[in-house]
Every structure is written in C-alpha cells, then in structure tokens.
C-alpha cells in the first residue's frame, strides 16, 4: 500500500531547507487569506502551482483528486449561504457571493496544494527538524512526526480489517444512517486494539533505542540555508508585504458584498 505522500525525487524544491519551505507556506497563507476577490489571488496561485511543477508533485494532487473535487463543489455552493451581495443571480446566489465563493474555494484548494507541495518534498524528519530549529522542543517534534507516521499505518490496518469483516458478511453500504454507524463497530474496535498493541511495541522499541538517553542529541540529517533559500525568502517576503500593503489600501475586496 502506498499511503505516503513524500516523493523521493531530487528537485530544486526538495533541496530547499525545510525552514524555507515552512516559511513559504506561511507566506502563501497570509498572501491568500487577505483577499476577497479571486483575481487578486491569481498571482500567488500561479506561484504555488509553479512550485508544484518544480517539485513534480502533480501525482499527489492526482491521488487527492476526489477530495479536491468534493471540496470544490461543496465550497462553491456553501459559501453563498454565508454572504450576500447586491446583484442577485439565482436563488441565494448573487454575483458578489459567487465571486467570494470562488475566492474561498481557491483559498482551500491552494492551501491544500501548498501543503501537498510541502509534504511531497520534505521528509517527516526534515519537517520536524525544521520546526525544532524554530525552537520546538525535540520531544514535541518527535511526537508530531510519530502521529504523522501513524496515519498511513492505521489506514492500512483499517483496510485489512474491512476486508476481514466483509468476508464474514459485513455490508457497510446498506441500511439507514444509524444502522450504518453501528456497522462501523466491527471495524473500529479491531483498529483500536491493533493500534494500541503496535504503539505499545513502538514505545518499547523507542526506549530500547535510547530515546532521551542524553539531554543533547545529534541530528544526522543536516539542514543548511543556501543562497537560493535566502533569495526565495526575500522575494517571498517582498511579495507578501506588498500583498498586505495593497490590502490595507483597500484593493482586492468585492464591492457590494455583505458578510454576516
């Protein structure tokens, strides 16, 4: 089973320092969240997609295509309910609310894409190391990376368990909501039990490898800021500051939009 998103390539983006990638991710969020109007988000959107292209991470977006599609439909419709505009189109949709929905949908999708870019190009350990260099305690960082690691393992065992129960006649697709929920019990209990068992061994293995033996610890993995990291951080910084400034000046909003 391939449930890992990390892609073992050696692209420009892969070679960046994890700290750079974390900050670029933050920049992207700031640059996007300010604007109500989709057109104003376009430049940053293009930069994020450029990053995806450089990182050759399209494959991961393809793997997430159903999720992305569902979110798009969902978000395009729902945001219309939360805002109103002066130019009605049909039902509860106005020109302004539609634009706003598009912007919010772009925000969600682009943040996911930026996140996928980050995870596709940065190993679990690098990400944690980046956070530690920002001051996160090692133990917290390790706990974080362990929980990230648990996701694919749990997904795998859920799949096996679902097969085991289906072969005993469990049919998850029929019945009303309550009945279906009840049917999840035969899946969830074994998942829970096996996860507890394996985390117990995990804990033992961890201690047996001397986890926390010394107050200081070597990091075999090294992260280093190169010229390209600084160039990107400065460029990204300029773009983000400009975006914030333009936003303060009042650009990028949708006239005639009413938020509740």
């Amino acid at each position: 089973m391939e449930t890992e998103l990390y892609l073992d390539y050696n692209t420009v983006i892969h070679r960046l320092d994890p700290r750079t990638k974390l900050i670029l991710f933050l920049y992207a969020f700031i640059g996007l969240v300010l604007y109500e109007h989709p057109l104003w988000m376009l430049p940053i959107a293009i930069l994020i997609l450029l990053q995806t292209a450089l990182a050759r991470a399209w494959i991961n977006l393809w793997r997430l295509r159903y999720l992305l599609f569902l979110l798009t439909v969902w978000s395009l419709v729902l945001w219309n309910l939360f805002v109103a505009g002066d130019t009605p189109l049909f039902l509860f949709v106005s020109k302004e609310s539609l634009l706003f929905s598009i912007a919010r949908t772009m925000l969600v999708l682009l943040m996911i894409i930026a996140g996928v870019n980050l995870i596709s190009t940065t190993r679990n350990e690098e990400l944690v190391l980046g956070l530690i260099k920002f001051g996160l305690p090692y133990r917290v960082g390790f706990a974080l990376s362990t929980s990230l690691r648990l996701v694919p393992t749990t997904a795998d065992s859920l799949q096996t368990i679902a097969q085991a129960q289906r072969s005993r006649g469990l049919d998850l697709e029929s019945g009303n909501v309550l009945e279906r929920l009840r049917k999840w019990l035969p899946l969830l209990i074994p998942v829970f039990i096996t996860t507890i068992r394996s985390t117990n061994i995990f804990g033992m293995a961890l201690e047996s490898k001397g986890f926390g033996a010394r107050p200081d610890r070597t990091f075999y993995l090294q992260t280093e800021m190169h010229t390209i990291d600084w160039v990107l951080l400065i460029l990204g910084g300029i773009i983000t500051v400009t975006a914030v400034y333009l936003n303060i000046l009042g650009y990028g909003s949708i006239p005639g939009l009413h938020r509740f």
Partner: peptide
C-alpha cells in the same frame, strides 16, 4: 513485529 519498530522514512535515518 518488524513494522512497529521502524520509525523513520528512510533506511539511513
């Protein structure tokens, strides 16, 4: 259990 005692995303690490 060889699954539960491996922590890293790469053999070297």
């Amino acid at each position: 259990d060889f699954e539960a005692q491996l922590f890293s995303t790469n053999v070297e690490l």
